[in-house]
Protein backbone atom coordinates (compact mmCIF):
# COMPACT_ATOMS: atom_id res chain seq x y z
CA UNK A 1 0.00 0.00 0.00
CA UNK A 2 1.45 3.40 -0.95
CA UNK A 3 2.04 5.89 1.83
CA UNK A 4 -0.35 8.40 0.26
CA UNK A 5 -3.19 5.91 0.12
CA UNK A 6 -2.40 4.71 3.65
CA UNK A 7 -2.56 8.27 4.99
CA UNK A 8 -5.85 8.91 3.23
CA UNK A 9 -7.45 5.69 4.46
CA UNK A 10 -6.20 6.35 7.98
CA UNK A 11 -7.63 9.86 7.92
CA UNK A 12 -10.93 8.61 6.50
CA UNK A 13 -11.49 5.81 9.02
CA UNK A 14 -10.41 7.78 12.08
CA UNK A 15 -12.44 10.74 10.84
CA UNK A 16 -15.57 8.59 10.63
CA UNK A 17 -14.87 7.16 14.10
CA UNK A 18 -14.68 10.61 15.68
CA UNK A 19 -17.66 11.98 13.76
CA UNK A 20 -19.85 9.02 14.68
CA UNK A 21 -18.92 9.34 18.37
CA UNK A 22 -19.91 13.02 18.35
CA UNK A 23 -23.19 12.15 16.58
CA UNK A 24 -23.93 9.64 19.33
CA UNK A 25 -23.36 12.25 22.03
CA UNK A 26 -25.73 14.59 20.25
CA UNK A 27 -28.52 12.23 19.07
CA UNK A 28 -31.58 11.12 20.99
CA UNK A 29 -33.15 8.44 18.81
CA UNK A 30 -32.39 4.84 19.70
CA UNK A 31 -32.74 3.58 16.12
CA UNK A 32 -30.33 6.21 14.83
CA UNK A 33 -27.85 5.48 17.60
CA UNK A 34 -27.74 1.82 16.59
CA UNK A 35 -27.28 2.83 12.93
CA UNK A 36 -24.37 5.11 13.87
CA UNK A 37 -22.82 2.27 15.88
CA UNK A 38 -22.90 0.08 12.77
CA UNK A 39 -21.07 2.82 10.82
CA UNK A 40 -18.56 3.10 13.68
CA UNK A 41 -18.02 -0.67 13.62
CA UNK A 42 -17.39 -0.62 9.86
CA UNK A 43 -14.94 2.29 10.24
CA UNK A 44 -13.10 0.41 12.99
CA UNK A 45 -12.83 -2.71 10.82
CA UNK A 46 -11.53 -0.48 7.99
CA UNK A 47 -8.95 1.01 10.35
CA UNK A 48 -7.81 -2.47 11.42
CA UNK A 49 -7.44 -3.55 7.80
CA UNK A 50 -5.56 -0.37 6.83
CA UNK A 51 -3.08 -0.53 9.71
CA UNK A 52 -2.66 -4.31 9.35
CA UNK A 53 -2.07 -4.35 5.60
CA UNK A 54 0.32 -1.40 5.83
CA UNK A 55 2.34 -3.20 8.52
CA UNK A 56 2.30 -6.42 6.48
CA UNK A 57 0.43 -8.40 9.16
CA UNK A 58 -0.74 -11.73 7.72
CA UNK A 59 -3.69 -11.97 10.13
CA UNK A 60 -5.01 -8.46 9.40
CA UNK A 61 -7.88 -9.59 7.17
CA UNK A 62 -9.07 -12.14 9.71
CA UNK A 63 -8.99 -9.66 12.60
CA UNK A 64 -10.73 -7.01 10.50
CA UNK A 65 -13.42 -9.54 9.62
CA UNK A 66 -13.81 -10.44 13.31
CA UNK A 67 -14.19 -6.76 14.22
CA UNK A 68 -16.70 -6.28 11.41
CA UNK A 69 -18.83 -9.27 12.44
CA UNK A 70 -18.79 -8.44 16.16
CA UNK A 71 -18.93 -4.62 16.19
CA UNK A 72 -20.96 -3.91 13.06
CA UNK A 73 -23.04 -7.09 13.05
CA UNK A 74 -23.64 -8.98 16.28
CA UNK A 75 -23.63 -6.11 18.77
CA UNK A 76 -25.95 -3.77 16.85
CA UNK A 77 -28.22 -6.77 16.22
CA UNK A 78 -28.34 -7.54 19.95
CA UNK A 79 -29.11 -3.89 20.70
CA UNK A 80 -31.83 -3.65 18.07
CA UNK A 81 -33.40 -6.79 19.52
CA UNK A 82 -33.18 -5.36 23.06
CA UNK A 83 -34.73 -2.08 21.95
CA UNK A 84 -37.56 -3.92 20.20
CA UNK A 85 -38.35 -6.24 23.13
CA UNK A 86 -38.06 -3.49 25.74
CA UNK A 87 -40.02 -1.13 23.51
CA UNK A 88 -37.67 1.86 23.69
CA UNK A 89 -37.75 4.31 20.81
CA UNK A 90 -36.73 7.72 22.02
CA UNK A 91 -34.79 8.87 24.98
CA UNK A 92 -36.27 11.25 27.51
CA UNK A 93 -33.29 13.50 28.07
CA UNK A 94 -29.99 13.90 29.78
CA UNK A 95 -28.51 15.55 32.81
CA UNK A 96 -27.21 18.43 30.68
CA UNK A 97 -28.57 20.24 27.63
CA UNK A 98 -27.55 19.07 24.12
CA UNK A 99 -25.53 22.28 23.65
CA UNK A 100 -23.42 21.80 26.74
CA UNK A 101 -23.13 18.13 25.90
CA UNK A 102 -21.57 18.95 22.52
CA UNK A 103 -19.35 21.58 24.13
CA UNK A 104 -18.19 18.99 26.63
CA UNK A 105 -17.51 16.56 23.79
CA UNK A 106 -15.35 19.17 22.02
CA UNK A 107 -13.43 19.88 25.22
CA UNK A 108 -12.82 16.17 25.76
CA UNK A 109 -11.51 15.75 22.22
CA UNK A 110 -9.05 18.60 22.76
CA UNK A 111 -8.06 16.97 26.06
CA UNK A 112 -7.45 13.66 24.28
CA UNK A 113 -5.04 15.39 21.88
CA UNK A 114 -3.28 17.15 24.76
CA UNK A 115 -2.72 13.99 26.83
CA UNK A 116 -1.66 11.86 23.86
CA UNK A 117 1.33 14.01 22.93
CA UNK A 118 3.66 13.09 25.81
CA UNK A 119 2.52 9.46 25.48
CA UNK A 120 3.61 9.13 21.89
CA UNK A 121 7.15 10.38 22.29
CA UNK A 122 9.04 12.64 19.93
CA UNK A 123 8.70 10.72 16.66
CA UNK A 124 5.44 8.84 16.44
CA UNK A 125 4.79 6.82 13.28
CA UNK A 126 1.81 7.62 11.07
CA UNK A 127 -0.61 5.29 12.80
CA UNK A 128 0.36 6.42 16.30
CA UNK A 129 -0.36 10.03 15.28
CA UNK A 130 -4.04 9.03 15.12
CA UNK A 131 -4.10 7.71 18.71
CA UNK A 132 -5.84 10.88 20.01
CA UNK A 133 -8.93 9.82 18.03
CA UNK A 134 -9.03 6.53 19.94
CA UNK A 135 -8.64 8.33 23.25
CA UNK A 136 -11.37 10.81 22.23
CA UNK A 137 -13.70 7.87 21.70
CA UNK A 138 -12.84 6.53 25.16
CA UNK A 139 -13.55 9.91 26.76
CA UNK A 140 -16.73 10.48 24.71
CA UNK A 141 -17.97 7.04 25.78
CA UNK A 142 -17.42 8.07 29.40
CA UNK A 143 -19.16 11.37 28.78
CA UNK A 144 -22.17 9.46 27.46
CA UNK A 145 -22.15 7.10 30.46
CA UNK A 146 -22.08 10.04 32.88
CA UNK A 147 -24.52 12.47 31.31
CA UNK A 148 -27.34 10.32 29.95
CA UNK A 149 -30.38 9.35 31.95
CA UNK A 150 -31.39 6.20 30.13
CA UNK A 151 -29.99 2.74 30.73
CA UNK A 152 -29.95 2.22 26.95
CA UNK A 153 -27.63 5.19 26.41
CA UNK A 154 -25.29 3.76 29.04
CA UNK A 155 -25.04 0.67 26.89
CA UNK A 156 -24.25 2.84 23.83
CA UNK A 157 -21.64 4.74 25.86
CA UNK A 158 -20.02 1.48 26.92
CA UNK A 159 -19.71 0.39 23.29
CA UNK A 160 -18.17 3.70 22.19
CA UNK A 161 -15.67 3.35 25.05
CA UNK A 162 -14.88 -0.17 23.92
CA UNK A 163 -14.45 0.89 20.28
CA UNK A 164 -12.09 3.62 21.47
CA UNK A 165 -9.93 1.15 23.35
CA UNK A 166 -9.83 -1.16 20.31
CA UNK A 167 -8.77 1.79 18.12
CA UNK A 168 -5.97 2.71 20.55
CA UNK A 169 -4.82 -0.92 20.56
CA UNK A 170 -4.60 -1.09 16.77
CA UNK A 171 -3.02 2.34 16.37
CA UNK A 172 -0.31 1.91 19.01
CA UNK A 173 0.78 -1.67 18.45
CA UNK A 174 -1.18 -3.17 15.57
CA UNK A 175 -3.57 -4.84 18.03
CA UNK A 176 -3.16 -7.41 20.77
CA UNK A 177 -2.45 -11.06 19.76
CA UNK A 178 -5.29 -12.76 17.88
CA UNK A 179 -6.16 -15.31 20.61
CA UNK A 180 -6.58 -12.50 23.13
CA UNK A 181 -8.55 -10.41 20.62
CA UNK A 182 -10.95 -13.35 20.17
CA UNK A 183 -11.44 -13.69 23.93
CA UNK A 184 -11.94 -9.96 24.36
CA UNK A 185 -14.51 -9.77 21.54
CA UNK A 186 -16.44 -12.72 22.97
CA UNK A 187 -16.43 -11.18 26.46
CA UNK A 188 -17.65 -7.80 25.28
CA UNK A 189 -20.35 -9.41 23.16
CA UNK A 190 -21.55 -11.44 26.15
CA UNK A 191 -21.59 -8.31 28.32
CA UNK A 192 -23.76 -6.57 25.73
CA UNK A 193 -26.14 -9.55 25.62
CA UNK A 194 -26.37 -9.67 29.44
CA UNK A 195 -26.96 -5.92 29.67
CA UNK A 196 -29.64 -6.38 27.02
CA UNK A 197 -31.42 -9.02 29.10
CA UNK A 198 -31.13 -6.89 32.26
CA UNK A 199 -32.44 -3.90 30.32
CA UNK A 200 -35.55 -5.79 29.27
CA UNK A 201 -36.08 -6.92 32.88
CA UNK A 202 -35.60 -3.33 34.12
CA UNK A 203 -38.20 -2.12 31.65
CA UNK A 204 -40.67 -4.78 32.85
CA UNK A 205 -40.00 -4.19 36.54
CA UNK A 206 -39.84 -0.37 36.58
CA UNK A 207 -41.85 0.48 33.47
CA UNK A 208 -39.02 2.71 32.20
CA UNK A 209 -35.29 2.72 31.62
CA UNK A 210 -34.80 5.92 33.57
CA UNK A 211 -31.61 5.69 35.63
CA UNK A 212 -33.05 8.07 38.23
CA UNK A 213 -35.32 5.14 39.16
CA UNK A 214 -32.28 3.10 40.13
CA UNK A 215 -31.68 4.84 43.44
CA UNK A 216 -33.25 2.45 45.91
CA UNK A 217 -29.99 0.90 47.09
CA UNK A 218 -27.85 3.44 48.89
CA UNK A 219 -26.46 4.38 52.29
Amino acid sequence: MSTGLFDQLLALTTGILLLSAVLLVWGRSVGQAIGVLVVQGVALAGLVLTVGVHAGEPQATFVALLVLVVKAGAMPWAMRRTAAVAGVGHERGSRVSPGSQLLGAAALTVLAYAVSEPLLGAHPDDAARAVPVGLSLVLLGFWQLLTRLSAFSQLVGFLVLDNGIAAVAFLTSGGVPVTIELGVSLDVLLVVLILGVLLVRLQREHGSLDLTELKELHD
Binding site: V191, I194, L195, L198, L202, L214
Partner: peptide, 8 residues
Protein backbone atom coordinates in the same frame (compact mmCIF):
# COMPACT_ATOMS: atom_id res chain seq x y z
CA UNK B 1 -32.10 -6.16 39.43
CA UNK B 2 -30.78 -2.70 40.30
CA UNK B 3 -27.73 -4.28 41.96
CA UNK B 4 -27.09 -6.52 38.94
CA UNK B 5 -27.32 -3.60 36.49
CA UNK B 6 -24.91 -1.42 38.46
CA UNK B 7 -22.59 -4.38 38.95
CA UNK B 8 -22.35 -5.24 35.26
Amino acid sequence: LEAAWKYV
